[in-house]
């Protein structure tokens, strides 16, 4: 975008971005505060190794938060994220040590994620079935597939690949930035541009010639891809595959997206919000661990934080409206 000839467009672009950021400032402040607290409690965080380890515990949650957010932006939702993560993990653990090696494994994981996501999308969108039920049924089918491929934890990931992704390198942090960058590029494609329109006002977008169905099905496919990639990373982290390792991610992905200000009705929210939401959840879990809370106290805190994060803007808005 050349700034000389299209200053008007530029100003509009930044105003739109500013508008989207407005509701997020509070979230960013909370995330920064938690990060500062974490660094204070655990000074080791401020080193290459510390950042690497933290980014590795954060990356899977960031990926599934994005997978859920892209669906919620189009007005959909997925209850199959956890099962898809598991499927990605077992496919990675069974193919990477095989004939086609790591490259073949990455292709297999990506292709299966895209295919499964697209299939869910076609069933939900083309057959006009409610997404929440389709993905609920799909979670059983996908979870079953994972159990068929690997009935019990096993398989293997080549050691060098594990070291590359989950060793003492900040590769995970780089991957977060890479995925965020790819998301920006996707938003500039025709399908990406249709995404917000399809979520905000499907009927209006359809009449204006936006490929609503295609944008939604593409969102499901990308969501499946992100989920299986999260599974791939977890498999690399643990060095093997586990057919039920992803279960907790379904609800956590919704929680992270919601914390990040992504709305259920479509068209509301930003990907940077969802990523910040996942960062908040991740830091919170680590901080509570360092403060010596029992691991389950994180559930209590998570529930309260979600309600607070959603209710506060509502309440302040109402007080502002009523002078």
């Amino acid at each position: 975008m050349s700034s000389l000839t299209r200053t008007g467009d530029d100003r509009l672009y930044w105003r739109a971005q500013g508008e989207r950021n407005r509701g997020l400032m509070g979230l960013f402040a909370v995330v920064a505060a938690f990060l500062a607290l974490y660094a204070y409690l655990f000074p080791g965080l401020l080193s290459v190794a510390g950042v690497s380890k933290f980014a590795q515990s954060w990356l899977p949650l960031a990926l599934v938060a994005m997978a859920q957010a892209i669906l919620m932006l189009t007005g959909g939702i997925s209850l199959a994220i956890g099962a898809t993560v598991s499927l990605g993990a077992v496919i990675a653990a069974t193919t990477m040590s095989g004939y086609f090696g790591v490259a073949g494994g990455i292709v297999a994981v990506s292709a299966s994620g895209l295919a499964i996501g697209a299939l869910c999308g076609v069933i939900a969108i083309r057959l006009r079935l409610p997404a929440i039920i389709v993905t609920l049924a799909a979670s059983f089918i996908i979870g079953g597939l994972a159990l068929l491929i690997l009935p019990r934890p096993g398989g293997a990931i080549p050691g060098w690949f594990s070291d590359l992704l989950a060793g003492n390198t900040p590769a995970a942090l780089g991957l977060v930035f890479l995925v965020a960058l790819l998301w920006k590029l996707y938003l500039a494609t025709p399908l990406g541009l249709s995404l917000y329109a399809a979520g905000e006002n499907p009927v209006g977008a359809y009449r204006a010639g936006v490929p609503v169905d295609a944008a939604r099905i593409a969102a499901y496919a990308i969501s499946g891809l992100l989920s299986t990639l999260a599974g791939l990373f977890i498999a690399a982290q643990t060095g093997s595959g586990d057919p039920v390792i992803g279960q907790a991610f379904t609800l956590n992905s919704i929680a992270a997206a919601v914390l990040g200000g992504v709305g259920f009705l479509g068209g509301r929210g930003t990907m940077r919000g969802a990523i910040a939401g996942s960062l908040l959840l991740s830091v919170m879990i680590n901080v509570m661990f360092f403060l010596g809370f029992p691991p389950v106290a994180q559930y209590v805190a998570q529930g309260l934080i979600i309600i607070g994060a959603v209710a506060l803007p509502q309440l302040t808005a109402r007080f502002r409206r009523r002078p």
Binding site: V296, A297, Q298, Y299, V300, Q302, G303, I306
Partner: peptide
């Protein structure tokens, strides 16, 4: 969902 998470912890 938040209520369920909260109750699970409690």
């Amino acid at each position: 969902l938040a209520m369920a998470t909260f109750l699970q912890g409690v």
